[in-house]
Simulated assay, not measured.
Amino acid sequence: QQQQQQQHCRDPLLGWLEIAISYRESFHSLDCTMVRARDLPAMDAAGLTDPYCKLNIVTPEGHTKYTRWQRTKTVHKTRNPEFNETLQFVGVEPEELGNSLLYVALFDDDKYGHDFLGAAKVCLSTVHSTTQYRISVPLGIEDQYSNEADLSQNWPNGKMLISLCYNTKRRALVVNVKQCINLLAMDNNGSSDPFVKLQLKPDAHKNKKHKTSVKWRTLNPIYNEEFYFEASPHDLNKEMLILTVWDKDLGKSNDFLGSLQLGAQSKGERLQQWLDCIRLPDHFHEKWHALAPDNPTH
């Protein structure tokens, strides 16, 4: 038991979430108000985050009750968001309350990936139809439900696996474009012919540009191609790597498929990967990121 307590002390506290819950029996409706969160983890270089909540009910069997996760609005640039938003779950029977949980996962809103901030579980057995139940819950670490909430997020432009390494011998940033998955289909055959353009900005002389080979007729191209950008570690603190994915069209202009930006101005996992690459040189740091629908090179 002592070991358990020690283990519990080591669990990181990811902040707090204040919730108000009420149950309207005549409507079989559970009304969940996300009031506010406090002391959330910082996700950008300025020490801020852009949080939102995703909610579901976990049944006594340990399954999520609803296929669709409910989502609050995003509150921008704060670790202490005031949500004050009520989300309703309809079709909750009174007898379900006894053994079910309200599950809330908080994420940081970013167009290249929503990073996990913390999760809260609330037993619904304490909820009565007469009064509103208010509670402040400590936020805990990732689990199967937060992963499910994460997977329920839609990335229509697909994802990219990128590996970064700062090579001290060559004084260069090495970028390995590994692969992409679930790219947009641009051609009549329901496929695309994707290639990736890379540029390290600022690029005054327009010589910090590379591109991968074209992979024909696939939405899940595997590249494993390496590119070198000369830069000092100090330079990298001020630079941004811009990756854009294109569908090769012979004889007409290429179609844009998605973009990713990595640098000291990034957030969450993107920022972490960039900083790890500078702090721990001569090692590859690999991560999946979502592709955004806007073209930053325009």
Rank of each mutant, 00 (worst) to 15 (best):
residue 146 S to H: 07
residue 146 S to Y: 08
residue 146 S to A: 13
residue 147 N to C: 09
residue 148 E to N: 05
residue 148 E to F: 11
residue 148 E to W: 15
residue 150 D to G: 07
residue 150 D to S: 14
residue 151 L to E: 14
residue 151 L to C: 06
residue 152 S to I: 14
residue 153 Q to L: 15
residue 158 G to K: 00
residue 160 M to S: 04
residue 161 L to T: 07
residue 162 I to T: 02
residue 162 I to G: 00
residue 163 S to R: 02
residue 164 L to Y: 06
residue 166 Y to T: 01
residue 167 N to M: 11
residue 168 T to Q: 11
residue 169 K to I: 13
residue 174 V to G: 00
residue 176 N to S: 07
residue 177 V to Q: 01
residue 181 I to E: 15
residue 181 I to G: 00
residue 182 N to K: 07
residue 183 L to W: 14
residue 183 L to E: 07
residue 184 L to I: 12
residue 185 A to E: 06
residue 185 A to K: 10
residue 187 D to I: 05
residue 187 D to N: 12
residue 188 N to I: 09
residue 190 G to H: 09
residue 193 D to F: 14
residue 193 D to Q: 06
residue 194 P to Y: 03
residue 195 F to V: 05
residue 195 F to I: 08
residue 197 K to S: 04
residue 197 K to Y: 06
residue 198 L to Y: 11
residue 201 K to P: 05
residue 202 P to K: 03
residue 204 A to P: 15
residue 204 A to W: 13
residue 205 H to F: 13
residue 206 K to H: 10
residue 206 K to F: 11
residue 207 N to Y: 11
residue 208 K to L: 15
residue 208 K to Q: 09
residue 208 K to V: 03
residue 209 K to S: 05
residue 210 H to V: 04
residue 210 H to I: 02
residue 210 H to D: 04
residue 210 H to C: 07
residue 211 K to L: 10
residue 214 V to Q: 08
residue 218 T to V: 10
residue 218 T to M: 09
residue 218 T to L: 10
residue 219 L to K: 12
residue 219 L to N: 09
residue 220 N to S: 12
residue 220 N to P: 06
residue 222 I to V: 13
residue 224 N to L: 09
residue 225 E to F: 10
residue 225 E to M: 12
residue 225 E to K: 14
residue 226 E to F: 11
residue 227 F to K: 00
residue 228 Y to I: 02
residue 230 E to K: 02
residue 230 E to M: 04
residue 231 A to H: 04
residue 234 H to N: 07
residue 235 D to E: 15
residue 235 D to T: 05
residue 236 L to K: 01
residue 239 E to G: 02
residue 242 I to T: 11
residue 242 I to Y: 09
